[in-house]
């Protein structure tokens, strides 16, 4: 597993072990990747994060149009694998979990342990810090550090 926030690793590892999910991707609601397990190519991670954030945003907008702002997680069941896309709140803001699972587990188990992972993440999250001004030199360095952490480059 790779992450840019070390405190998410224990909750995500526990989730993976208990749910038997194949892939997990944690991202902010803007699609910025926080942690991932199961992806082998960086392009796949970035595509999945962008698409996942877009799907959640679209669903919420549909909910708003229909007068229901409480649309929660969504599940897609395929023949060989299923996908769960679940937005949730953390002390650091709104995040999204994208989980891919196979026939070795079930949607019910994935949802059960996903709820527990969210609880664990809320407990493990550090206090939010005041936002720093984004400087050009910091941006490049921070971006490279995040890419190294997520993709090992």
């Amino acid at each position: 597993m790779r992450s840019i926030e070390p405190w998410v690793e224990d909750p995500v590892r526990t989730f993976l072990a208990e749910s038997a999910a194949r892939v997990v991707l944690l991202m902010t609601s803007a699609g910025q990747v926080v942690a991932q397990h199961g992806f082998t190519r960086s392009m796949d991670v970035m595509s999945a994060a962008a698409l996942g954030a877009g799907i959640v945003a679209s669903t919420e907008e549909i909910g708003r149009v229909l007068g229901d702002s409480g649309l929660g997680s969504q599940a897609h069941q395929g023949r060989r694998q299923g996908i769960v896309l679940a937005p949730f709140m953390t002390p650091l803001g709104r995040w999204i979990a994208l989980v891919v699972y196979g026939p070795e587990t079930s949607l019910g188990l994935v949802q059960l342990f996903l709820d527990r992972m969210v609880t664990d993440l809320r407990v493990a999250a550090p206090e939010p810090q005041l936002a720093r001004p984004v400087l050009a030199e910091d941006f490049e360095r921070d971006l490279n550090a995040s890419l190294r952490a997520l993709f090992g480059r």
Partner: peptide
């Protein structure tokens, strides 16, 4: 197949969703 609750009755102090998921597993 998916461990989800279809219907429940009188689950006194017991959460239905975890029981369903684990029982199906």
């Amino acid at each position: 197949e998916d461990g989800l609750v279809i219907a429940e009755a009188a689950m006194d102090g017991v959460e239905a969703a975890p029981v369903a998921a684990l029982a199906a597993s």
